[in-house]
Design a protein around this nucleic acid. Structure first.
Length: 352
DNA sequence: AAGCCGGGGCG
DNA sequence: CGCCCAGGCTT
């Protein structure tokens, strides 16, 4: 493709963008901090889902220093329900990097931005192109979809070969005179016009040059290779009540929901049978054997993640002397809402 | 290169 | 129920 042809595609996308773009708060600024927050929130997340989180986040942490100086629980609490919580933890780690290594000034060089924790090639390109109009092409899910269709590329996007191919293609198509606008345009075009399922190609200003449309197989793109395996897990949560108190536990280790809180948990290989509930396989993990306890099964919740299905059972247990194990945090029941928790635990707490 | 990390919306 | 989404980190 000639440079002239490349610019033709870019100008078509930009023209479409100027007529169809949504009015979004992070488009009113070139402040790299604001752009950064919005981009991280939007990783693997739809605008509709992330918008209210963005507004609350910026209100609570208007500048890098506010985020760097906050407690992690506060940051996670604001992130609660959005998923992929490493984004929130990395966001704060990066804010502290900016304070310590960049004198509190958001870096402007692509390499420096890329060095920030939680910032990969996509996000770095987005930040420097939107904030400083530097010529780095973004490659996200939208770009894969738009380019694979227009050029009918059947190289799987989820391979290193595909990533390389698409990032080189995207870079060659970039309008160096207005990279920020170009990047916004191609992503918005993917989000609104060149949508994943049943795009309205009859009403598309780029369909005349779309090779997938010409081949009548737009739905076949983008090609993806892998589908991930899904694991079943069985979580037994114990809502242990001691008067006006209940207990929480902070998740650590390399697993889901790192640094979020939850009820005391017993994970089992299979569904916990009624017979095993009181014994060593069940409550014996929390209390002395043969202790007589009042246990009530409250509810079951099936919680689906992208890579796991969690079958959760919730039990309430009344005790009359405090738990001694200090890995459990004793809190007032009424304060439970102050702690960052997963959607699953929130579903339970919310309906008490 | 492959696996892991959330949650919601859609047909 | 399966698929997708303004990806990045770890191994």
């Amino acid at each position: 493709m000639s440079k002239k042809e490349n610019l033709r595609l870019s100008s078509i996308l930009i023209r479409w963008y100027e007529e169809n773009k949504r009015d979004l708060p992070w488009r009113d600024t070139v402040d790299p901090y604001i752009i950064w927050i919005s981009e991280v929130i939007l990783q693997q997340t739809r605008v509709d889902q992330g918008l209210s989180y963005f507004n609350r986040f910026i209100q609570r942490f208007p500048a890098v220093r506010d985020l760097a100086e906050a407690g992690e629980d506060d940051v996670l609490k604001l992130w609660q329900g959005l998923g992929y919580y490493s984004r929130a933890r990395n966001l704060q780690a990066a804010a502290r990097m900016i304070m310590d290594e960049f004198n509190g000034i958001f870096p402007a060089g692509y390499k420096d931005v890329l060095s920030l924790k939680g910032v990969g090639e996509y996000t770095a390109a987005a930040i420097v192109s939107f904030s400083y109009d530097q010529p780095y092409a973004v490659v996200d899910g939208n770009v894969y979809r738009v380019l694979s269709r227009i050029f009918a590329i059947d190289t799987p996007v989820d391979t290193s070969k595909g990533k390389k191919l698409f990032s080189e293609l995207a870079q060659s198509l970039l309008d160096d005179a207005r990279p920020g606008l170009h990047n916004q345009a191609i992503m918005e075009f993917g989000a609104l016009q060149c949508v994943p399922v049943s795009p309205d190609c009859g009403n598309c200003s780029a369909s005349f040059m779309c090779m997938a449309y010409a081949g009548r197989n737009v739905g076949a793109y983008p090609v993806k290779e892998g589908k991930q395996k899904i694991r079943d897990r069985y979580f037994n949560y114990f809502d242990i009540r001691y008067g006006e108190y209940m207990y929480l536990h902070k998740r650590t280790g390399r697993d889901i929901w790192q640094n979020l809180y939850e009820l005391p948990l017993l994970e089992t290989e299979k569904e916990l049978s009624h017979d095993d509930l009181g014994g060593n396989k069940g409550l014996g993990n929390f209390f002395e054997k043969d202790k007589s306890l009042f246990i009530k099964h409250v509810r079951n919740i099936k919680h689906v993640l992208s890579h796991q299905v969690i079958y959760a059972s919730f039990f309430q247990v009344e005790i009359n002397e405090a738990l001694t194990d200090d890995k459990y945090l004793r809190i007032r029941v009424e304060d439970a809402g102050q702690y960052p928790v997963s959607r699953l635990v929130h579903k339970y707490l919310d309906e008490l």
